[in-house]
Design a protein around this nucleic acid. Sequence first.
RNA 1: GGCCUCGUGGCGGAGUGGCUACGCAGCGGAUUGCAAAUCCGUGUACUCCAGUUCGAUUCUGGACGAGGCCUCCA
Length: 435
Amino acid sequence: MTLKFYNSLTRSRDEFKPINAENVRMYACGPTVYDYAHIGNARPIIVFDVLFRLLRHVYGKDHVTYVRNITDVDDKINARAEREGISIAEVTERTTEQFHADIAALGVLEPTVEPRATAHIKQMIDMVSALIEKGHAYEADGHVLFDVPSMPDYGQLSNRNRDEMIAGARVEVASYKKDPTDFILWKPSTGNEPGWDSPWGYGRPGWHLECSAMSAKYLGETFDIHAGGIDLQFPHHENEIAQSRCSHGTDVMANVWLHNGFLQVEGEKMSKSLGNFLTIHGLLEYWPGEVLKFNMLRTHYRQPIDWTEKGLEESLTILQRLYDKCAEATTVPATIIDALSDDLNTPKAIAELHQITDPGEIAAALNLMGFSCDTAKITKSQGNIDEAKINALIESRNQARADKNWAESDRIRDELDAMGIELKDGPEGTIWKVK
RNA sequence: GGCCUCGUGGCGGAGUGGCUACGCAGCGGAUUGCAAAUCCGUGUACUCCAGUUCGAUUCUGGACGAGGCCUCCA
């Protein structure tokens, strides 16, 4: 079995060779818990869940470690707490709960470890100390900054050199920086801002630091796969690499870097000002989680995706037809494994799904990608339905049908149709469902 | 301005140097009291211009177009 992934670090499709096949290790950047996760946030969750499942299938369930963090210290969190007059802990706890509820509805596996940034401040402080000691960081004006020029090959992942970064900088450079590209490892906290005591005074970590500290703790100094959204490639992932490699003295942080593409909504960039900002929570009111997931996986993870209502409807139709064909899961056909093994080609896998005729294999293939095959789970939200009334109407319609009173029969069908109820006359009698 | 993706039929979306993608929708048929579901059948494609080649949607160059990143947005 050969797995291939497009590696952002080498900019080529490379064969995947785990450092240790007994323990394949992957890390994905998780959410900053300041508000409901939006549908764009759901993309890495969904596609890298498929990756996790594939790795478990190939290397064995107990031979894959997946770490996905929760960022619970961030200025956006502080701002929300301030705005609503509630504590920071309340914001992070409530949002973390919402996040877990949302992704549970999507049917993704829990990661092996889900570390929180605030529980790893000590590891972060140790890492900053190591960086200062090794000459890769310096203290200035209460801040600790990473000394970018001290790392000759900084910029490998995003393929940019220092001159370009300086020329492209749109933000005014803080006066305490020795070099415009230097970034913050530790910053001072005042007032209501969260903070911890450190050798550099009371303060809090910079945004990039936590992923470096937590990945090292749970996956080691060098591990197999690091994944996240394309927008994180620079500066977040670039800086993670700098921190991790320079503090550990290693040549690589992670062998393979995977980046998922961006998402648009009805052809436009999703933004609060355009009023097309879709949260997972909001979508779940109308659409089953597995439909959201299926819709996501119909596009290859590196491609941009245009998230549309039409696409969701189509996804629901396709999924319903597939689920109707499912039986007890047996073995996953090789065509499905081959497609997923080729850089997580989920659209190809879905196309292959349509070629499978064995009901048990269809179910097994769907299961592998994280679909339940449970028809009840892909029924759209029913709202307020008066079942007794519906059943009474169906009964009188069936009486009319028995009497061959087709006019009355159709009249009742129309009446139910107006209520949003669709009838199907099958061999086992009449069944109904919400349209 | 710099860097990076991408441009396939009505829509979604893989892939390939020459041979049907696939799905949704549409159309025709079977079935059905009528429907729904199901089954069978079916059409149109590879942004443009040059080059390489016996042959390019697929490789190279250019043009045009879309999107992303360029210090905390997945």
